[in-house]
Amino acid sequence: MREGDEGMDIVRGIKGFLAGNFFLSAIRMLLGLMFLYSGFFKVLDPVSFGRVISAYGLLPGPMVPYAALTVSMLEMVLGVLLLTGTWIRPAAAVSILLMLAFSAAISINLIRGNEFDCGCFELSRFGINERISIWLVLRDLAMAAGFLIVHNARRHPISLESFIEKRRLREL
């Protein structure tokens, strides 16, 4: 009987998480912070990020600067939106696409037999060289799954969206 209750608690916990609870909000904010941090350094030094994009060998040369400028600013914008809880669904949807694109880019280069610094999260600034590997693909896919959960959640207790909605309902 007691074991059954515990099992039900776990199921309820998972359901609550998937529907959107404080824990999911914390994860969303953490993902937002990660994007904000990563994008900030890329916006400051887009040329270095452009060199990383070039190393992947997937875009024609003239497109690289535009991709570097767009992706770096996109990460910043997504970071702010996810952190504050604004436009959560579109921000999560774009984040999923971004993570899938990163995974595909790494996978293609692994198949090509290339090996170079992945340029993830600007870790090379701190002397940490994270080279492309299957683990990075899995990490990006795991993050895409995290964004999918955020995208599908119906509630976001800690968010600007929720705060504005509550105020609106109070004023009715």
């Binding site: 535009y66 767009t70 600013m73 996109l74 939106l81 921000a91 774009v94």
Partner: peptide
């Protein structure tokens, strides 16, 4: 989502 991508491009 499209607004975000285009906006990021222009802001970038």
């Amino acid at each position: 989502g499209a607004v975000l991508v285009v906006g990021a491009f222009l802001f970038g």
